[in-house]
């Protein structure tokens, strides 16, 4: 065989990542029911629970509407991250992914595009809700809101990366629903989003201890608690709350971990399936 010299063009990975991220963006906002699902449901929960539980809830001097606000932000981030990463399964089934897999870009660009695009969508949705809360007066405007935006950006990327890790090896969206109800929603419920982390008392029950440590080990607790503190909340009596510094460290560490997991899963699973 005669050696053939063919000029091989070098594709630009960052351009590919930006394009795939942009694609997520366009797809998401073109499917209106997704926007409604990801933004509408958490807001509805917030209004219903906030109003319904007003009389029976007190923590750190806040009513439930205020207490539940950071949890709602986290839920918007979670829902949007899930809706966008579930599309990996659709991409695989509908065939879009195979076109990307035969392209001369490294495989991680697919995951990076998904995380960046999905994360940006989640962040913008949460920002919309935050802006609404400022307008109706639940949140007082302050310089801390920039920190809130920053922490939400970290949370958005984290949850999207987590979604990618679950969705990548999956064959059907049904499997993802199982993950949603068995892993992701419990993670959110036990993050202090819905009720504060109980502080185990001397002679407290085993259940109290277990709950305390599960919630304390839940990485999402740090993001939710960070948002709560930045929005003016504090630990109520008999409840636990990490320091704000711990919250930042915990959130960034969670981001690093989910990124690494997503990276590992996407590169490990080299074989594309139809």
């Amino acid at each position: 065989m005669t050696p053939v010299t063919i000029e091989v063009p070098k594709p630009n990975s960052s351009a590919a990542v930006m394009m795939l991220a942009k694609r997520e963006w366009v797809r998401f906002f073109r499917q209106r029911q997704r926007v409604i699902g990801a933004l509408g449901q958490p807001i509805l929960f917030w209004l219903l629970f906030g109003t319904g539980m007003r009389s029976s809830f007190q923590s750190g001097g806040q009513d439930f509407m205020t207490y539940y606000l950071p949890g709602t932000l986290a839920l918007i981030l979670l829902f949007t991250a899930i809706f966008t990463t579930i599309s990996i399964i659709e991409d695989r089934r509908e065939g879009f992914l195979q076109g990307v897999l035969v392209a001369p870009v490294p495989r991680w660009t697919i995951a990076a595009g998904k995380i960046l695009g999905g994360g940006a969508i989640a962040w913008v949705q949460a920002m919309i809700f935050l802006t609404l809360s400022v307008i109706i007066g639940t949140v007082t405007p302050s310089i801390d809101l920039f920190a809130v935006a920053g922490l939400m950006a970290i949370g958005a990327l984290t949850l999207t990366a987590l979604g990618v890790s679950f969705a990548w090896p999956m064959e059907s969206t049904q499997g993802f629903h199982a993950v949603m109800s068995l892993v992701l929603l419990p993670m959110w419920l036990l993050s202090g989003a819905f009720f504060p982390v109980p502080l185990p008392q001397e002679g407290g029950t085993v259940g109290q201890w277990v709950m305390h440590y599960i919630m304390r080990c839940n990485p999402l607790s740090y993001t939710v608690s960070g948002l709560r503190q930045l929005l003016g909340g504090s630990a109520g009596e008999g409840t636990w709350m990490p320091s704000l510094t711990s919250c930042w460290i915990g959130s960034i560490a969670f981001l690093a971990i989910t990124f690494s997991i997503a990276w590992f899963i996407v590169l490990r699973n080299q074989r594309a399936r139809n």
Binding site: R23, E94, F96, G99, V102
Partner: peptide
């Protein structure tokens, strides 16, 4: 990959 054009049987369009 960069020299190949691939057209799949199932659609690969978004």
């Amino acid at each position: 990959r960069s020299l190949l054009g691939v057209v799949f049987q199932s659609a690969s369009l978004d």
